[in-house]
Write a protein that binds this DNA or RNA. Structure first.
Lengths: 110, 110
DNA sequence: TCTTATACATAATTATCTTATGTATTCGTG
DNA sequence: CACGAATACATAAGATAATTATGTATAAGA
């Protein structure tokens, strides 16, 4: 499990990117997908994820579809057009940031 | 200039690593060195740097040497032995984190 | 002389995350 | 079939770390 300090600031980027890659997803599914992709090293907490999703929705970057699965509700999130653009920008920003950090820390990252 | 969100959590790692690479340095010098290494993309703010250095000192990870330059004081920071170990660990942690993020975001970096 | 750079520092505010708590359904297993 | 674990949503309190603002002072350069 990674030190959570470094994870700060990356949550929105992660959420936008997995939504971009997997189409519509619901909250719990996002946590599981990220856990899987990170080989158990990034465990998104609900206390961080849900407020983040709600914020993205309020900003029009994602839209939702509520589906009933038996008696349980499931709230799917999908990127809007601005959301797709932002997803791309955030990933680019992250890649650039890593490039800069590589220079500062003088290490190779592969 | 990078979005500061991503920078969060990396300050201590940066400070420890530049101290490790450059020996004794004073606060202002650290900001300038990081600015130089990052090609102007990472500008450490004093409000973040000084408290961070003081914390490292309180934890015995750096020690200080105060030098008078004319009428001005200059406070040099040097890594202690535990500080050197931590510097190495923090960089390793960062590299591992990037590796994980690469898997999650499914991008190549370099 | 006056602006910019050097050099330290702290305080108030903001943002984001963790931890804790809450509710409820569904699945798996002894 | 009972019960714990997993699924699935959500919010609130508290912690932490950063930004922004402010303060003091010297030195250099135009």
């Amino acid at each position: 499990m990674h030190s959570s300090e470094l994870l700060k600031g990356t949550l929105q980027t992660i959420v936008l990117k997995v939504l971009k890659d997997h189409g519509r997803m619901y909250g719990y599914e996002i946590t599981q997908r990220v856990k899987e992709l990170s080989d158990g090293r990034i465990l998104l907490t609900e206390g961080a994820l849900y407020p983040s999703l709600h914020k993205l929705e309020a900003e029009g970057l994602v839209k939702t579809e509520i589906v009933n699965i038996g008696k349980r509700i499931r709230k799917y999130y999908l990127l809007t057009s601005p959301g797709k653009i932002l997803a791309k920008d955030r990933v680019t920003e992250f890649v650039d940031f890593i490039s800069t950090m590589r220079s500062v820390l003088q290490v190779k990252m592969n």
